[in-house]
């Protein structure tokens, strides 16, 4: 019998993974409903929090609520999906297939970015309605492009985190410890410069810290942030994102080797 399997197309595997993530999401209302309701709640809370904080409070509100509704899904969605693979028993057949697991993760990352952006759009719509108009943005197109990039940079950290979920079934424990610290430490809700100075070097290890600071430069005239200017922030975001993707590329192979040594793929 001739094996029909061809050289595996990594792009096709990534698309297949994206497709299955969408199908699973649509098949399960427990995800669909909160992913639409939560952004509405976050938007209203954020709007009330920043109301009266100045002419650009709307942008703060949108960024804060938008990131609140998007970051968890984008950052941890891929890891959760791997944890689900463990629970469903699908991690073994997936690892056993010729597709490197990293490309399965990338498909999920794409879905998480897309669903995160959908949440962001809901936040935007709610705050515009609540405020009676759109926020004052000096460069709306640049802001939108940078916003998508920040989501991708967040996702690049998510790919590295996902490797932990392949590595061990206890990855959720690590995530639970770091979840809120990461959210505050990367400046999702308010600028990192407001935090104690000693926390800043830790924050700078993560791409979203740079990206969010760059976003605020772009959206809020007179914003000072770290004081390095927009382009340094943008370069910092790009550099750290590339670094995270490189780390992901190199550690997945090692992680796979480790789990084959440990034999813990079916444990959950």
């Amino acid at each position: 019998m001739e094996t029909v399997a061809n050289e595996v197309s990594r792009g096709r595997s990534t698309v297949a993974s994206l497709r299955i993530a969408i199908l699973q999401f649509l098949a399960d209302p427990q995800w669909l409903i909160p992913s639409m309701i939560a952004p509405v709640v976050f938007a209203l809370v954020s709007y009330e929090l920043f109301r009266g904080s100045g002419p650009y409070f709307l942008t703060y509100a949108i960024l804060g609520a938008g990131m609140m509704s998007m970051w968890g899904q984008t950052l941890y969605g891929s890891g959760w999906a791997t944890a689900q693979d463990r629970e469903f028993g699908t991690l073994e057949p997936t690892i056993q297939s010729p597709t490197p697991y990293l490309y399965v993760i990338l498909g999920r990352v794409l879905w998480n970015v897309l669903s995160g952006l959908f949440g962001g759009l809901i936040v935007y719509a709610v705050i515009v309605v609540a405020a009676g108009g759109p926020p004052a943005l000096p460069d709306p197109l640049g802001f939108a492009i940078l916003f998508v990039f920040v989501m991708l940079s967040l996702a690049s950290v998510g790919v590295v985190f996902a490797a932990f979920y392949v590595y061990t079934r206890y990855a959720g424990f690590i995530q639970n410890i770091g979840e809120f610290a990461f959210y505050v430490g990367t400046g999702c809700m308010f600028p990192v410069v407001l935090l104690p100075f000693w926390t800043n070097p830790i924050s700078l290890v993560f791409p979203p810290t740079w990206g969010l600071d760059a976003l605020r430069y772009l959206a809020i005239p007179g914003y000072r942030g770290f004081g390095w200017g927009f382009w340094v922030d943008l370069l910092g975001a790009l550099g750290t994102t590339v670094a995270y993707l490189a780390i992901a590329g190199s550690i997945f192979h090692r992680v796979e080797r480790h789990v084959l040594e440990e034999g813990n793929l079916s444990q959950y």
């Binding site: 029909v4 061809n6 595996v8 595997s13 297939s97 597709t99």
Partner: peptide, 11 residues
């Protein structure tokens, strides 16, 4: 379909 793609079956 998913596993066919992971195994690189021609479309």
């Amino acid at each position: 379909r998913y596993f066919a793609d992971l195994y690189g079956l021609p479309t």
